[in-house]
Amino acid sequence: MNHESLARGVPGTAPGAVVALAVTGQISVDPVEGRTIRFGRNRPEVDICVGETDLRVSRQHGVLTRRSGHWWVSNTGQLPIRLPKTRLLFRDEEPVPLPDGYSPLFVRGSHDREHLLEVYVAGEDGGRPAMRHSAVTQPPKRWRLTEDERLLLVALGRRYLLHESNPQPVARQQVAEMMAELQPDSTWGIKRVEHMIADVRARLSAAGVHGLLREEVGEPVGNALNDNLLKELVLSTTLVPPDLALLDELY
Rank of each mutant, 00 (worst) to 15 (best):
Trp143Lys: 03
Pro129Gln: 10
Leu244Asn: 03
Leu64Arg: 09
Gly109Lys: 07
Thr13Ser: 15
Gly16Arg: 03
Glu177Gly: 11
Leu161Gln: 09
Arg113Gly: 04
Gly222Leu: 04
Ala135Asn: 11
Thr187Tyr: 08
Arg67Gln: 14
Arg203Gln: 11
Thr238Asp: 14
Asp125His: 13
Pro129Trp: 11
Ala17His: 04
Ala20Gly: 02
Ala155Cys: 15
Gly77Tyr: 07
Glu124Ala: 15
Gln78Trp: 04
Ser165Asn: 08
Val209Gln: 07
Val96Phe: 10
Thr13Leu: 15
His111Leu: 14
Cys49Thr: 15
Leu230Phe: 06
Leu105His: 07
Thr187Asp: 15
Pro44Gly: 09
Val50Ala: 05
Phe90Ala: 14
Val73Lys: 08
Lys231Leu: 10
Leu230Gln: 09
Pro84Ser: 04
Val175Glu: 11
Ile48His: 03
Met178Lys: 09
Leu88Arg: 14
Ser165Ile: 13
Leu239Tyr: 09
Val18Arg: 00
Trp188Ile: 06
Ala22Lys: 03
Gly62Cys: 10
Val19Phe: 00
Asp112Ala: 14
Gly126Phe: 00
Glu194Trp: 09
Val193Glu: 08
Val175Trp: 10
Gly34Ile: 01
Ala207Lys: 08
Val119Tyr: 02
Arg201Leu: 05
Glu249Gln: 14
Leu229Gly: 04
Pro80Gln: 00
Gly34Gln: 01
Gly62His: 05
Gly62Thr: 12
Thr24Trp: 08
Ser186Tyr: 03
Arg56Ile: 03
Ser103Asp: 05
Val154Ser: 09
Gly123Asn: 13
Glu114His: 11
Arg108Ile: 13
His3Val: 13
Pro15Phe: 07
Phe39Val: 07
Glu232Leu: 00
Val154Gly: 06
Trp71Gly: 08
Arg87Gln: 15
Glu147Asp: 13
His115Pro: 07
Glu177Asp: 15
Thr24Gln: 14
Val32Ala: 12
His115Trp: 15
Ile27Met: 12
Gly109His: 08
Glu94Met: 12
Asp248Asn: 13
Val107His: 01
Glu124Ser: 13
Glu219Arg: 13
Leu246Gly: 09
Pro242Ala: 10
Arg201Ala: 02
Arg108Tyr: 14
Leu250Ile: 11
Gly157Lys: 12
Ser134Gln: 12
Arg201His: 04
Gln174Cys: 01
Glu149Asp: 05
Ala17Ile: 02
